[in-house]
């Protein structure tokens, strides 16, 4: 891996400043995507701005919403007792990312900023209609995810927190890639406070997306049975040696059913 300048600012403003000053800078959160990428020589930034000094970890559970600091690790999210009551699907999702060691380092902010098409968090963010708080603004999830490894974040903008509405019910089911354990298909289902239903799918396409055909069926009847015979179209889904688009399409319905069954 190429060498780089390293800074660990304590304030968001300083981090932004450091990034603006850098020739080709990258933010570092948990590092579980960035460091392997650097090791493989797929990126060679001149500057690394480590966000761990911002100390913005924490899960705040309110009556209507939950706000999670960007620096909160997957283990901390999964381990939050309040969150497990408020949004059990989200806590379960966090507890299934990577492996225990990865969960000790990886953060929600890093995951959302990276927007790996096989990451888990984007499914929860889109599935619950979360709001992404950044150093500059608040971005609704609908507008945040713009494609494969691509988000609405601009230049030196930093994710600082994520705000999730507390739903009536939520659930997540993942079919991991058997080798990497990333989501080959992950489905987040939520019945929101207003009774509306959202289904977000990760791993299956070039980026996280909602599945309207499943949402329509579940809006009528929020039960796994309601999804019987509802097929998701394979067109546009990812196809690789681990799973064809057809197989992924099939798994979306299966995982959606399992997510509904698990929803609390």
């Amino acid at each position: 891996m190429e060498n780089f300048n390293y800074v660990r600012p304590a304030k968001v403003a300083d981090a932004v400043k450091a990034m603006k000053k850098a020739k080709d800078g990258k933010y570092l959160a948990g590092g579980h995507t960035l460091l392997p990428t650097l090791k493989q020589g797929l990126a060679a930034p001149t500057d690394i701005v480590d966000l761990s000094g911002l100390k913005n970890a924490g899960v705040k559970v309110g009556a209507k919403s939950v706000t999670i600091g960007a620096g909160t690790t997957h283990a901390e999210v999964a381990g939050s007792k309040d969150l497990r009551k408020a949004i059990p699907g989200l806590a379960k999702l966090a507890g299934g990312i990577g492996d225990p060691h990865v969960r000790h380092r990886g953060t929600i902010g890093g995951s959302l900023a990276n927007n790996d098409p096989a990451a888990d968090y984007p499914a929860a963010a889109l599935g619950l209609g979360a709001t992404i708080h950044t150093s500059d603004r608040k971005i609704p999830a609908e507008k945040y995810f713009t494609g494969m490894f691509s988000t609405a974040l601009k230049g030196s903008e930093i994710v600082t927190a994520v705000e999730f509405p507390v739903p009536k019910k939520s659930g997540y089911a993942k079919f991991p890639n058997p080798a990497s354990l990333y989501a080959m298909v992950g489905v987040f289902v939520a019945q929101l406070a207003d009774g509306s239903v959202r289904v977000a799918v990760t791993g299956a396409g070039p980026g996280v997306f909602r599945a309207p055909e499943l949402e329509a069926a579940l809006a009528k009847n929020f039960s796994a049975k309601a999804l019987d015979g509802i097929a998701v179209k394979a067109k546009g889904l990812n196809s690789d040696m681990h799973a064809s688009a057809e197989y992924r399409a099939h798994l979306i319905t299966v995982m959606a059913k399992r997510a509904v069954e698990a929803a609390k």
Binding site: Y6, G31, S52
Partner: peptide, 21 residues
């Protein structure tokens, strides 16, 4: 996982953490 050590009491992969961090 051959590189797992404990950092501040938690298991982490030491191949995926910068020493300086």
């Amino acid at each position: 996982g051959a590189c797992v050590v404990h950092v501040d009491g938690k298991a982490v992969k030491s191949c995926t953490a910068l020493a300086i961090a």
